[in-house]
Design a protein around this nucleic acid. Structure first.
Lengths: 206, 206
DNA sequence: CCCTTCGGATACATGAACGTATCCGATACA
DNA sequence: TGTATCGGATACGTTCATGTATCCGAAGGG
């Protein structure tokens, strides 16, 4: 079905990368809905021919862009979680993860665009859901690893449930951050929310 | 600066309303970014002339639409919160509010579009922030009224802080709902999150 | 060193959306 | 009932993005 002509791959990979990078900037600045193909090509220093040689449609580029960055973030989170021992030091872990997740407002902007895009395209939604599931699983693993050292509130159920709550808190804080652009406040809030969720309210921060 | 010719107001109000209603449906179905003015007019059964007679731009219509619906929701939430006595019955309150907030997926879709729109337009962002502040204040009032009957976890600070957390939880659950479209699951999750946040984890659901 | 193949540029045709300017019917008021 | 004004429809010109078809230069193989 698909012929894979794998010659001359160097130049091609470079322009593809430049296109993706330029697309990220343009999407972040103007929003997916308002961006034209030409605009991206211009920002990347290419003509539209280059675009159509690498992508069939703007949606396809957007999808590729999201996957690239999302995988990057996911691995960074996993790394941040793996960084301390079996005992879960909640404040420290939260700080490190928060640092990764709320580092780049531009990424949050693009991610939100991708969300509303996915909300109307089942295929895209599936991909996003899978990605979120992977992230939740990483968090749940970490929480499970901490069992016995730290106990979770019962309301959330198992580690899987707690991970779900963590992601929800992250998403919730993101919304406010997109509006007020106050990264520090968002970090603080996410920290407070996560400690409230992951620890026994009566026991922490006496 | 502005002349306000207030004659013949009946027909005008009706077409404006029909335009807004049609816009809501079209926005929900296709997303703000993909919608043309003509599309809305078609759905409303009007020509573009009618649109330009009532709104200067699509952004203006979107803004009006959001305000209309958001005010409606806000009053419904306030009503749901006022419904029980001074003692805060967390599960019952949460159920009622949840019912209102997670009733209409279409509204959540439109709201998300508006969010990413606002995230890039400071003017719009201000309006949205004010609206969120009003909603938070209503919740905080309710929580304060319950002081002495139910105590809040200390991590979140005062009632204002707790209200902030409630909104964050709502936003977080919304994101997942937009992807999996499972309203019941979302309601259940929001309930669990809110009870986890608003009550002492060790004390509830023994 | 040629020459085949590939990648990106250029040129072109098409269609869609926009905003305006003008027209006609309807409505409110005398 | 007449009439002035208002609201929405129609018609028009223009801009802009898209996708394709073709061309040229450059990289890589023999």
């Amino acid at each position: 079905m698909e012929d894979t002509p794998k010659r001359v791959t160097r130049r091609r990979a470079a322009t593809r990368a430049r296109l993706l990078e330029a697309a990220f900037e343009v999407f972040a600045a103007r929003g997916f809905g308002r961006v034209s193909i030409e605009e991206i090509c211009e920002a990347a220093g290419f003509s539209r021919g280059a675009f159509y040689s690498n992508f069939a449609t703007l949606d396809e580029l957007f999808f590729a862009l999201y996957q690239e960055r999302a995988d990057l973030i996911a691995s960074q989170v996993a790394e941040a979680l793996a960084q301390d021992g079996p005992g879960l030091d909640v404040p420290a872990s939260v700080d490190r993860v928060t640092e990764v997740l709320l580092l780049d407002v531009d990424w949050l902007l693009v991610k939100s665009d991708f969300l509303v895009h996915a909300a109307r395209d089942p295929e895209v939604a599936r991909a996003l859901l899978e990605h979120r599931a992977r992230l939740r699983e990483a968090i749940a693993d970490r929480l499970r690893r901490a069992r016995g050292h730290t106990e979770l509130p019962a309301v959330l159920g198992d580690a899987q449930g707690a991970a779900h709550a963590v992601v929800a808190a992250y998403d919730g804080v993101t919304v406010q951050l997109l509006l007020d652009r106050d990264v520090e406040a968002a970090r603080a809030w996410l920290g407070r929310l996560l400690t409230a969720l992951l620890t026994d309210g009566s026991r922490i921060l006496a």
